[in-house]
């Protein structure tokens, strides 16, 4: 199985390549990708240099152009596709059907991967994208169990990529409106979830209080590990109880199930984290590379290195091991 690794900057890209990535995914410095954070992402020149470096190490580069086009502004997204192809990207990760159609028509030789943001999670949806636009791979939303993935793999005619480590969304990729509800901006349309421009932190005594827009998202007592200031990871008062109404602040880790994922028909394992620093990228990629080469008994010890790098310093297998159903 391929190891698909994140890079938010050229420096992180180099770290990912050097740490053992089979492919590195990244995006342009604009709204066309779902990690449009300040100071992050690649200019055209930076992408060209990074692709050249990856090629010299026999590593592939995937370019994520995975937000949804705005009516009247399609040229931004079309231009991103044209440039990624021109610069030699090995695959384009797309979410918008209109952009997939444009790519299939203008660049039929380009390898098209269906972004997790497209929310293609059943055989009909995936096969439609394969037949209509020639998609070669689908990145599955994090809503399926491993048996679900195995059943799906038998019914579709393209490769499957799944997230195995990193930040975990509320499991409605491409359809989540929580950030948009509070801030007017979303990962789907603007490439930002809980944009930093709307985030505030303050100390209240020994508590760390995080706020998003006009909402208090969480209050962390001294000594408790903190999480991201996203609405889905907020701690709220609901009725008589107080707690995490949507999901706990924790990162995904399903590396204990890689044999089952392989047997289910998964071709590629993806690491989330384009917004993380190069130190994170180097540590996570090298650890996952070692874990892939290790036997099942050695894996937990290797992966335990990464707990402290995870949100809330905890990890979960999420929906892959859906115990609540």
């Amino acid at each position: 199985m391929e190891l698909i690794c994140p890079a938010g900057t050229p420096s992180a890209f180099h770290e990912a390549v050097n740490a053992g990535a089979d492919a590195v995914y990244c995006g342009f410095r604009d709204e066309t990708n779902a990690r449009n954070f300040p100071g992050l992402n690649f200019s055209r020149d930076e992408l060209a240099q990074s692709i050249a470096y990856a090629r010299s190490k026999e590593v592939m580069t995937f370019v994520a152009i995975n937000t949804f086009m705005r009516a009247g502004k399609e040229a931004l997204w079309y231009g991103a596709v044209d440039d990624a192809v021109r610069l030699g990207a090995d695959a384009l990760i797309l979410a918008d059907f209109g952009l997939m159609a444009y790519t299939a028509e203008r660049h039929p030789q380009a390898r098209l991967h269906v972004s997790v943001q497209a929310s293609a999670s059943n055989a009909d949806a995936v096969n439609f994208l394969v037949e209509a636009f020639g998609a070669k791979r689908v990145v599955l939303p994090r809503i399926l169990t491993i048996p679900d993935i195995a059943k799906l793999a038998k019914k579709i005619s393209c490769e499957i990529e799944v997230f195995v480590f990193g930040g975990l969304c509320v499991m409605a990729e491409g359809r989540c409106s929580l950030s948009s509800y509070v801030t007017g901006k979303s990962p789907n349309m603007n490439g930002v979830c809980s944009p930093a421009s709307h985030v505030h932190y303050r100390q209240d005594g020994k508590d760390l209080v995080s706020e998003l827009g006009d909402f208090t998202i969480n209050r962390f007592p001294a000594g408790e590990a903190a999480g991201y200031p996203t609405l889905c990871k907020g701690r709220f008062d609901v009725g008589d109880s107080s707690g995490y109404a949507f999901e706990d602040p924790a990162s995904l880790d399903v590396m204990a199930h890689i044999d089952a994922l392989r047997e289910a028909g998964v071709s590629a394992l993806k690491i989330e984290g384009r917004q993380r620093g190069k130190a994170y990228v180097a540590e996570v990629v090298s650890t996952l590379r070692k874990t892939l080469a290790a036997g099942p008994l050695e894996r937990p010890a290797l992966m335990s290195r990464l707990h402290l790098l995870s949100e809330g310093q905890r990890t979960t297998s999420g929906a892959y091991e859906k115990r609540w159903r």
Partner: peptide
């Protein structure tokens, strides 16, 4: 110097 990941240091307080 980018030796540590800022998010991880934020999580750990």
């Amino acid at each position: 110097e980018g030796k540590y990941d800022a998010d991880a240091l934020f999580f750990s307080r």
